[in-house]
């Protein structure tokens, strides 16, 4: 359906914006390495089913490889910055201070409690879906500490947030058309979108009106 396609396109767009930002500007100011590492973990645990060869579709499989590949590549590009632009790297590390153990621990616990089956694959899937819902927190924390961000960084966060928000009408659509109700995805999707809501509001008020992102 249209919402799901738009959501996936928005997710793709967010990654392209991020890669272009890092490659062109050769700096990583305002981008959280911790959030990017969490995404590597999210995609690697979510798409373990690639190893079972029970593929849904070519589209699905290609997208999975793309998300794993690009998330690893982003982390590598950011690590490279240690040598190519040490000032920018140091500045990023100085601001990227969110303690991710407070996300990893609870997500692992939630995965043990809420899952569809008590198998390695399903537990990893559930862990990834919980972790994805909060993976943006180090990035948002960094943003709130510095109080402002480059326009490209805010476009990246917006596209990334929009992707999960668009999955919500997709789930409503699928409930009516296929009688499909995936409670875990829906709950974590709502949680994820809620975490972005404050950002969305400021993005709408400032960036979309061409005023640049600055926190009140």
């Amino acid at each position: 359906n249209i919402f799901r396609i738009l959501a996936d396109l928005s997710h793709l767009a967010s990654i392209v914006i991020l890669l272009e930002t890092i490659r062109k500007a050769r700096q990583i100011d305002g981008i959280s390495l911790k959030t990017q590492i969490l995404y590597v973990l999210v995609f690697c645990t979510r798409y373990l089913d690639l190893l079972t060869f029970r593929w849904t579709s070519l589209y699905n499989t290609l997208m999975k490889f793309f998300f794993i590949g690009t998330s690893v590549y982003v982390v590598k590009l950011m690590q490279d910055c240690k040598l190519t632009n040490p000032v920018s790297y140091k500045d990023m590390m100085f601001r990227d201070t969110f303690q991710i153990k407070y996300l990893l621990g609870p997500c692992a616990l939630l995965a043990l409690v809420f899952n569809y089956k008590f198998t390695v694959l399903e537990l990893c899937w559930s862990f990834s879906i919980w972790l994805e819902s909060v993976a943006i927190l180090p990035q948002l924390f960094m943003l709130s500490r510095s109080g402002k961000a480059s326009t490209l960084t805010t476009h990246y966060i917006f596209a990334l947030g929009l992707y999960r928000a668009l999955y919500i009408p997709n789930w409503i659509w699928r409930y009516y058309s296929e009688n499909r109700l995936e409670k875990l995805s829906i709950f974590t999707g709502l949680l994820q979108t809620a975490l972005y809501s404050d950002f969305f509001y400021i993005y709408y008020r400032k960036v979309m009106k061409g005023r640049g992102f600055e926190l009140p």
Partner: peptide, 10 residues
């Protein structure tokens, strides 16, 4: 629900 555990979304 029959759809449980069939992860066809990204």
């Amino acid at each position: 629900n029959e759809n449980k555990g069939t992860h066809d979304e990204l």
